[in-house]
Amino acid sequence: MNRISATRSELLARRAGIRLAIQGRDLLKEKRTALMREFDRLSADAVAAMQDLEEKARRARASLSEAVALEGPEAVGSAALAARNEIGVRLTAKSVAGVKIVDLEHDPVGRARTDRGYSLAATSPRIDTAAEGFETVVEVLLDFVAVELSLRRLAEEITRTTRRVNALEHVVVPRLEKERDFILNVLNERELENRVRLMRARSRTDERARQTGGLAERSPA
């Protein structure tokens, strides 16, 4: 505090700084509220998607196990190699309180039996069922990836915003208020001292005036 210049301009600067810090804190709180609202919405979607993914993956694994057991691992492996395919994906984004929320669009994953590349004569419906099950799993997984990425970005930004809110609320604003109060106290003390000096000066002036008046009355005409 000893380095602070206790002047009116510094007092005004501290008051302006406090107003600005409070405004910034309030804006950050509004941003955090918007981010948390979007996070809650996506979290509900993510939980539903995860449950759906787990169920579809369980069914797909059961279909695969059945196909391997009845058709043999070589037949299933050969069909899997023949069915390999690329899936086109496109990322788009929207901004929520300055955070990019990802949306992933992709080509259809599911295919007809005749489009999977393996010989229908050399395979059975069990392999078709397993292929269809895992195509469904991949489709749900692609949808889930975009949600998970958005959730991570939102969580990181919520954490950063919370740190900034806490810094303003518990460090910056209290420090500025303490400096403001210090400057105000010093200025008030100075004003009080000036008033006391002024009163003393006036008292001395009045006393001299009375003494001068008394001497004038006693002097001969």
Rank of each mutant, 00 (worst) to 15 (best):
M1K: 02
R3K: 12
I4R: 11
A6Y: 02
T7N: 08
R8W: 01
S9R: 10
L11H: 02
L12H: 07
R15Q: 11
R15M: 01
A16Y: 01
G17W: 00
G17Q: 05
I22L: 15
Q23W: 04
D26N: 15
L27G: 09
L28K: 13
E30K: 10
L35D: 13
R37Y: 05
S43Q: 12
V47I: 08
V47R: 07
V47E: 10
V47Q: 03
A48P: 00
Q51G: 15
A67Y: 01
V68M: 14
L70C: 04
P73Y: 02
E74A: 10
G77M: 07
S78L: 05
A79Y: 00
A82Q: 08
I87T: 11
R90M: 00
L91R: 15
T92Y: 07
K94I: 04
I101P: 03
E105S: 13
H106R: 09
G110H: 09
G110Q: 12
D115K: 09
R116E: 08
G117R: 10
Y118L: 13
S119P: 11
S124T: 15
S124V: 06
S124I: 13
D128M: 03
T129K: 08
T129W: 01
A131Q: 08
E132F: 09
F134I: 14
V137P: 08
V138R: 13
V140R: 12
D143S: 14
V145G: 02
A146C: 10
V147T: 14
E148R: 09
L151T: 04
R152C: 02
R153H: 00
A155D: 06
E157M: 11
T159R: 15
R164A: 15
V171Q: 12
V171F: 07
V173P: 05
L176E: 10
K178I: 01
E179T: 12
R180H: 10
R180F: 07
N185A: 15
E189Y: 01
N194W: 00
V196C: 00
M199C: 00
A201H: 11
A209I: 10
T212M: 10
P220I: 02
A221V: 12
